[in-house]
Simulated assay, not measured.
Amino acid sequence: MEEPASTNVTEFSFENTTFPDGYEDLLMKTNLTVKIYIELYTILSLICVACNIIIAFVIIKYRRLRLDKSNIILLNWTIVNNLFMITSPISQRLSTDWETYFAAYTFFCSLEQTQYCILLANLLLVDLLLINWYLKVYHTVIYGKFVNYLNYILVAIYVLVIISTGVHVSSCFEYRLITSEVFLLISYLKFIVFMIAMNIVHLVKRRRLAPSTVTSNMPLYLVNTYFLSICPLLLAIFSHFLLRDQLFSLIILIGGLILAVMNPIYFFIILYNFDKDYRTFFGHVFSSKCCKYKDDELQEEPVVFNGSVQLG
């Protein structure tokens, strides 16, 4: 009986695999960089959560701030942003363990898709904040109608984000193609173009603006801060695919991500230093005096002339 021809099969083994020189050293440095990043990111996330809570608290507590519709939009932004800041460190910390990641793929995928949709809500609320300020400064008649529909616009944003979340999360269970990352990236690119155009329009129109206007430009400062914070991240994402030095590109990517997520800290610093009302109310919070004041505290006192009262 003729014996079958022997087949020369070489079994694959990591032990027999030779890696390029310096690969193990690069892997150790990369792992150390990721570990440092995770811890730093977690600490910054907790600080961002605290800043959002303080900003939201003073808006809810003091009616003077709630009278300005831009603060209502900012309040919604802090709430939505906190959802991201609370969940993001959890997903990033767990995703570093690849074995756990693939074992619970649908959970991590669902969490990531939800976070992408939350970022979209953040972006839409920032857009709304700028539009609200622009109409208030340059188109007062339209602004009067706009504020009447502001609550409906906010509800529409939440409904859109919830539907988007449901669509993308369902892709994790059906193993369909997920395009939320690409869609979010395109949304950020559109936002950059939108911000450049709006700033140019503002520079042109403000020369014609009556000098007596008392409308605060604080929303513009906040939105421009948000705009400037995400630009390094987008540049880091593109450079990550162009640079050959993996460790260096990873450090740039991490740096851009950290700068982008610190917006609550930026907002708190800007409001504290450049807005008199916020600085006063923050002072009440830090000095534990906020419980001593009523909801309408610090409303402007009426001006009295010879016993008659003139309301401001």
Rank of each mutant, 00 (worst) to 15 (best):
A5C: 06
V9C: 11
E15I: 07
T17Y: 13
G22E: 13
N31E: 11
K35W: 11
I36D: 07
I38L: 14
Y41P: 03
Y41K: 07
T42S: 07
C51E: 03
N52A: 07
V58A: 02
I60T: 12
K69T: 05
I73H: 07
M85T: 09
S88V: 14
S91D: 09
T114L: 00
L119F: 00
L120W: 00
L125V: 04
I131Y: 02
W133M: 02
H139F: 04
F146L: 13
S171R: 14
T179K: 14
L185N: 12
I186W: 00
K190E: 09
I192K: 05
M198W: 15
V201L: 11
K205Y: 08
R206S: 02
A210N: 14
P211A: 06
M218L: 12
I230M: 13
I237W: 05
H240N: 12
L242D: 12
Q246C: 01
S249T: 15
I252H: 12
I252D: 00
L257E: 10
F274A: 05
F274M: 13
K276T: 12
D277M: 02
T280C: 08
G283V: 04
F286C: 08
S288A: 11
S288Y: 12
K292L: 15
E297H: 04
V304D: 03
N306T: 15
